[in-house]
Design a protein around this nucleic acid. Structure first.
Lengths: 256, 256
DNA sequence: CGACGGATTGAAGCACCTCAACGGGAGTGG
DNA sequence: CCACTCCCGTTGAGGTGCTTCAATCCGTCG
């Protein structure tokens, strides 16, 4: 038991140390992110302005409405973006994973809150200094535009989900999205859900009960299998895709 | 009666002629759109690659899944963007108005369909030639990024609406969005709805009946007043904003 | 072991959907 | 000019999918 605890707590710390001591050149997610647009010989300029940051689960990176002075890239963990109504109703607009970009608001203030779902490591760039870099490296700006374009497409998928899909279709779509993200990093048919059911519900526009019931139905129908409450195995990806409303023949990877 | 017909058909034609004969320098919406990033003396380069296009109501500009070879800027009218599920359920992801940009997908294929709501005029730019221009005019690319960032913020607002707002709140929010758009071009308290109730329903994730009932309630409560079925007057903007869930103190104009 | 937070399951309620009838403006044909 | 049709919007009545409320279960931690 103490082993498990040690693993959970120490491992992120170790990686944090790695991240703090190593320059961008050693970064695992660089190729996947916008930093990949910078030639290796110029990476020092990125190193010069980056600050590494660590978040514990639940920690808030920034609030909706905060002045936006920084941009972030996630190198480890999962971050949720959310918006709230006055009475507390919450909508999660996205879950971010390593290599994802964050804080694209080139506006005055963030339009959403960002919180750590699990232990998170990220690179922080002061907005004005990164903008200066953008002027030097047009390829990076082009890449930023591509990222924005991708996120826009993902947002439109999500609107279709929220506006027109049933509860079961939403949950199936959610698992498909997660699956595709995980495929990028190894595992084929297993998906881990670092976020709570509440988070999933707030992402899908459902209550936790409905999420739970939908997951149970998928389990009952032998489409998925639970290893733990957070780790599942996709037994029948084809049927899952059908349930999700396979609206993505022509789409490569969505950013979630 | 023939006068009315003449007005409807001839007026757009006349403007079309204007648009075809006049270069970008004379464009009414240039300052509002990404073209505004190009210095007046270089506008000829834009003129050189632009093709003007006219759409009749209901006409399809492109389909979800079509190869994306063009980008567009709307100069007149209203365009709806939509995505569909296999069984025909539709989600409208946005309504576009003059000065709005369209086709941002820097990807292989359009992720949504675009159709004219009413008579539409637009400027069409071949994708590769516009990209060449972007290389020459970094300010234009920066502006494109700003546009994308705005649309992303609008998309997130829409997710909150679709995931967590009630029918009445959705309709109120919709009117607020339209109102803000109209304010940019003169009128203060009147809003015109060029789209059908079906379109509105598919935008808000509701049925036409629910849209109609919500509008009737707003009417009964003296918050709005109908001039015709398409033109309404916002009698009590404050209460409308409250109903919409005034989640936008810190936000300037959203792109819809 | 007991307590706590998150997840599951069941039962009842409600907001929105479905189905259906009706109304009104625009176009058509006599 | 009127009768007719068609489409769109409105309104009502009943149905349902998801929510709400509540009880229970389960893994984790003190």
């Amino acid at each position: 038991m103490s082993n498990v605890v040690a693993k959970q707590l120490v491992q992120p710390l170790q990686r944090g140390v790695v991240a703090e001591n190593n320059p961008c050149a050693a970064c695992q997610v660089r190729d996947l992110s916008i930093c990949g647009a910078i030639e290796p010989e110029h990476l020092g300029k990125l190193d010069a302005i980056v600050v590494h940051k660590k978040l514990v689960p639940g920690e808030i990176l920034f609030f909706e409405g905060d002045r936006s002075d920084s941009l972030y890239i996630i190198t480890e963990g999962c971050v949720r973006l959310s918006k709230m109504l006055a009475d507390g109703r919450r909508q999660i607009t996205g879950f971010l994973f390593p290599s994802d970009f964050l804080g694209l608001a080139l506006r005055e203030r963030y339009a959403y809150s960002a919180e750590a779902v699990d232990p998170v490591l990220l690179c922080r760039y002061p907005k004005n200094r990164l903008e200066a870099l953008l002027d030097q490296f047009p390829a990076m700006e082009r890449r930023l535009l591509a990222v924005a374009s991708n996120e826009l497409a993902a947002a439109q998928d999500q609107m279709l989900l929220l506006g027109r899909k049933t509860a079961l279709e939403r949950v199936a779509s959610f698992l498909m999205i997660l699956m595709r993200r995980m495929q990028l990093k190894g595992r084929q048919d297993t998906v881990s859900l670092p976020m709570t059911r509440t988070d999933i519900g707030d992402y899908l526009g459902l209550t936790i009960e409905t999420v739970s019931r939908s997951l149970s139905k998928l389990k009952r129908d032998r489409i998925v299998r639970f290893l733990t409450a957070q780790d599942m195995q996709i037994v029948d990806p084809k049927r899952l895709a059908q349930l999700a409303g396979a609206d993505d023949e022509w789409k490569p990877t969505t950013t979630l």
